[in-house]
Amino acid sequence: MAHDDATIKSNILHMPYADATRSVRHVFVRDYETVARIGVWDHEKDTRQKIRISVDLSVLEGSEHHEDQLAKVVCYNDVVIGIQKILSEGHINLVETLAERIAQMTLEDVRVIGTRVKVEKLEAVDGAASVGVEIERHRHP
């Protein structure tokens, strides 16, 4: 019997990405596709696999306006460059590890108070469009 996820109680509280009452803006990277040396199986160790990454950030807006200045905002291109740097550091066994490293990288910016990272392997399982993991992490005061 199928169930309706809306009726299941959970101890997970998802923070809204954008929230005007808390001066929070949503910065995101959607469906960034690249290749990575990732996987635990022997046949995955010597090859690159197609992956897709999505990142959603909750970003505190400063008390002053950004005045159309890139230096005053969290830049989505910097997120992509950070992902590329992580991937260039060598083989990663688990998509969970990659997601955690990306989350940690985004939280290094003190303006980022929450991050959700989704990592998908696009060719790992025959018949599946993708497999992977999605995590959510928050800055702890």
Rank of each mutant, 00 (worst) to 15 (best):
M1K: 12
A2N: 14
A2F: 15
H3F: 15
H3Q: 12
D5Y: 10
S10Y: 08
I12Q: 08
I12F: 03
L13F: 04
L13Q: 15
H14G: 10
P16L: 03
P16I: 05
P16C: 01
Y17N: 14
Y17H: 14
Y17A: 13
D19R: 09
A20S: 13
T21Q: 11
R22E: 12
R22P: 02
S23W: 03
H26D: 06
V27G: 00
V27Y: 05
V27K: 06
F28V: 03
F28R: 05
R30L: 12
R30Y: 03
D31Y: 04
D31V: 05
Y32D: 03
Y32E: 02
E33R: 13
E33T: 13
T34A: 01
T34Q: 02
T34R: 02
T34M: 01
V35R: 14
A36L: 06
A36P: 06
A36Q: 04
R37A: 15
R37Q: 13
R37P: 02
I38C: 07
G39E: 07
W41R: 15
H43K: 06
E44Q: 08
K45F: 10
R48F: 13
Q49S: 05
Q49N: 08
Q49F: 04
Q49K: 10
Q49H: 12
Q49E: 07
K50P: 13
R52A: 13
R52M: 11
I53R: 00
S54G: 08
V55N: 04
V55R: 00
S58M: 01
S58R: 09
E61H: 02
E61R: 10
E64H: 10
E64C: 00
E64F: 06
E64A: 10
H65G: 12
H65E: 14
H65D: 15
Q69H: 09
L70T: 05
A71Q: 15
A71Y: 10
A71V: 11
A71F: 03
A71G: 09
K72F: 11
V73G: 07
V74T: 02
C75N: 15
Y76Q: 07
N77A: 15
V79E: 04
I81D: 14
I81M: 12
G82L: 06
I83N: 02
K85M: 10
I86D: 00
E89P: 05
H91Q: 11
I92K: 08
N93A: 15
N93G: 14
V95H: 01
E96Y: 01
E96G: 02
E96R: 04
T97F: 07
L98I: 04
A99E: 06
A99M: 01
R101S: 11
R101M: 13
A103P: 00
M105P: 03
M105W: 04
M105R: 10
M105D: 11
T106I: 08
R111W: 07
R111H: 10
V112E: 00
I113E: 12
I113C: 05
T115P: 03
T115Q: 02
R116G: 12
R116E: 13
V117N: 08
K118Y: 01
V119M: 02
K121M: 09
K121Y: 04
K121D: 05
K121C: 07
L122C: 08
E123Y: 04
V125Y: 04
V125H: 08
V125F: 08
D126N: 13
A128P: 09
A128E: 13
S130V: 07
V131H: 04
G132P: 03
G132S: 07
G132A: 03
G132Q: 03
E134W: 00
E136G: 11
R137C: 09
H138P: 03
R139Q: 11
R139N: 07
H140G: 15
